[in-house]
């Protein structure tokens, strides 16, 4: 997977990544201190921020040319961005509708994911009353149910208490490996990277550190 011309000027800050090669399988990590541009990189790759000239070749397809909806990506944001007016189940089912997956297949996948991520007991709770760990797992289920082409995890454990993090890391690692979805993990935590990632790219002040 090759990314070219990931360049954008924010005025007082610049992302300047002219070339970046990543494995198209397993978990890759993008690591750097706070303010190094990690989240901006994700947002540009997702298409949420403009980056004219960006080329993102993935399995002979230039994802940069596709609209956000058609890229078939998934993300678990740092604050999870669950739909707070819905229950956990509805959050996950939304992704099923959005991807155009038929209901039966969606139900099967949901059951499977809920079991794997241990969220069966909270499926009918409102998203506002879930604990941090439960939200993280629901967000992950929502991201995975559509069988995305690529998964972004943006500091997925930062909101969790320390004693929950190691458990969460192992769970995420197991599920991501089982579903075989290439993943980019963004984190500044060394433990996250050590447990989950097979390769690491460092970023500092908007540039990759070689």
């Amino acid at each position: 997977m090759v990314i070219k011309n990931l360049i954008r000027n924010y005025g007082d800050f610049q992302i300047d990544i002219p070339f970046w090669s990543l494995p198209d399988h397993g978990v890759s990590a993008l690591s750097g201190p706070s303010g190094s541009g990690k989240t901006s990189v994700i947002r540009m790759l997702l298409g949420l921020e403009p980056c004219p000239g960006l080329v993102w070749t993935f399995h002979d397809l230039d994802l940069a040319q596709l609209s956000i909806e058609k890229k078939r990506l998934a993300v678990v944001f740092q604050n999870y961005e669950l739909f707070l007016h819905m229950t956990a189940r509805e959050n996950i089912q939304f992704a099923v509708s959005a991807r155009g997956i038929d209901k039966v297949t969606g139900q099967i996948r949901l059951k499977n994911l809920a079991q794997r991520l241990q969220i069966e007991s909270v499926l009918d709770r409102s998203a506002t009353v879930l604990s941090g760990g439960e939200r993280q797992r629901v967000a992950l289920a929502r991201a995975l149910i559509g069988e995305p082409r690529f998964l972004f995890l943006d500091e997925p454990f930062s909101a969790l208490d320390a004693h929950l993090r190691s458990e969460a890391r192992l769970l995420v690692k197991t599920v991501v490996e089982e579903f075989k979805i290439p993943t980019l993990l963004v984190s500044h935590d060394a433990a996250d990277i050590e447990v989950l990632a097979q390769s690491v790219t460092k970023i500092d002040k908007g540039r990759l550190v070689i």
Binding site: L46, L48, I68, E69, K70, K71, R72, L73, A74, V75, F77, N79, E81, L82, F83, L84, H85, F94, A95, S97, A98, R99, G100, R142, A143, G146
Partner: peptide, 24 residues
Amino acid sequence: GSVESAQIFGANRWLRFSKIIWPQ
């Protein structure tokens, strides 16, 4: 944030409006 999430998950404009934006 939630609208962007919905967009990333592939929801078209009408789905984003009816399920995510309007209820909130």
